[in-house]
């Protein structure tokens, strides 16, 4: 039941079965995170490169620890400037590290589609750790895992995603993932930060999928929600005239206790981090009991362990041992 794929680039092209497999495995890996000895020998001899063209703390660390807990060797290349500016193309960088025997490249890149380009030219498995405004599939998976862990299911839940949908790869991965798993997804934010024709994504969720609704009224999205997911607002967007001021944004679209009172009694609050406290999310909300923001971080490691295990754990191809039920004796 492994993933029959070389790369993980999007949740758009991932089936419900594949997503479910990752979530199921992730709960087993979470148990390992609770042990004194947080290490299993599974990926001994495999090497993983984290190649980050954008600044990142939690995602890069999360992948690195996930690899290390599975006994893989992990190395990091971080550059905040583009490779092209520095003179080396992405292709040359990729071929160089592949020649050193890297089995998996975890890449974050400011340009949408860059991991697809990498996947086409590399033998190594590619995991998209965020590409431009496109997708961040492991974030989507860890959010789904965090929701399912608290709610016991995804189907039928009302999930409100609030903020800068336009520039958010986290939103896109969550819309695909949650929608296909049957949640009712609501998007809310200023009209200038809602991407064109986004509501059409809902038409492709499939027969088991949920619905997608778009509104500019945060209250409408939060009302009776099971989950409220707040997105990070990139403050430099203001300079482009997409909204007039931080103050007005916080007033009209900020998530605070008053607005959260509209949600279901047992709702949970999420944020992919890093937070702008007092802008998109109020501090007293972020630190309240219903916040699972810290759980999201822990679950991120478990989900990434599952992803790395499922991508790199197999690999024997034709010589696969055909024993029944996956058991050895």
């Amino acid at each position: 039941m492994a993933l029959r794929r070389k790369d993980i680039l999007t949740l758009e092209d991932m089936s419900v079965q594949e997503m479910q497999a990752i979530l199921d495995n992730a709960s087993s890996f979470k148990e390992i995170l609770g042990r004194d000895i947080k290490k299993v020998p599974t990926l001994r001899g495999k090497s993983i490169l984290t190649l980050f063209y954008e600044a990142s703390t939690r995602t890069r660390t999360s992948f690195e620890l996930a690899g290390k807990y599975l006994s893989a060797d992990t190395v990091n290349i971080a550059t905040t400037t583009s490779a092209i500016v520095k003179g080396e193309t992405l292709k040359d960088t990729a071929w160089t590290v592949e020649a050193m025997g890297i089995d998996c490249i975890v890449m974050r890149h400011p340009i949408a589609g860059a991991p697809h380009f990498l996947a086409r030219i590399c033998q190594a498995s590619i995991v998209n750790a965020g590409d431009g405004m496109h997708e961040h599939p492991t974030q989507g998976l860890l959010d789904m895992f965090s929701i399912a862990e608290r709610k016991g299911r995804l189907k039928g839940l009302k999930v409100a995603i609030i903020g800068d949908i336009f520039h958010s790869r986290v939103a896109r991965s969550n819309i695909w993932g949650l929608g296909k798993m049957g949640a009712d997804v609501w998007l809310a934010g200023p009209s200038t930060l809602i991407p064109p024709e986004v509501e059409r994504m809902g038409e492709t969720f499939g027969s088991r999928g949920g619905r997608l609704r778009v509104t500019c009224r945060v209250e409408e999205a939060i009302e009776a929600a099971d989950v409220v997911m707040v997105l990070r607002l990139q403050l430099e967007r203001q300079k482009k005239g997409l909204f007039p001021s931080i103050r007005e944004y916080a007033r009209l679209f900020g998530v605070d206790r008053r607005r959260l009172a509209l949600a279901k009694d047992d709702f949970i609050l999420m944020h992919p981090g890093p937070m702008n406290r007092g802008v998109e999310i109020a501090s007293n909300a972020a630190d309240a009991d219903y916040s699972v923001i810290i759980d999201q971080v822990t679950n991120g490691v478990a989900v990434r362990m599952a992803v790395l295990y499922l991508l790199l754990g197999g690999g024997g191809g034709e010589e696969a041992v055909a024993d029944k039920g996956g058991e050895v004796r």
Binding site: M1, N25, S27, S28, E31, V40, G45, G313, G314, V328
Partner: peptide
């Protein structure tokens, strides 16, 4: 005990078997 992650034949199998919890 789930021993999937400790198997010595993981790299000779075509796919990674499902991991269950150790409890």
């Amino acid at each position: 005990l789930d021993i999937t992650l400790y198997r010595d034949d993981l790299t000779t199998r075509s796919d990674a078997p499902e991991v269950h919890r150790t409890e």
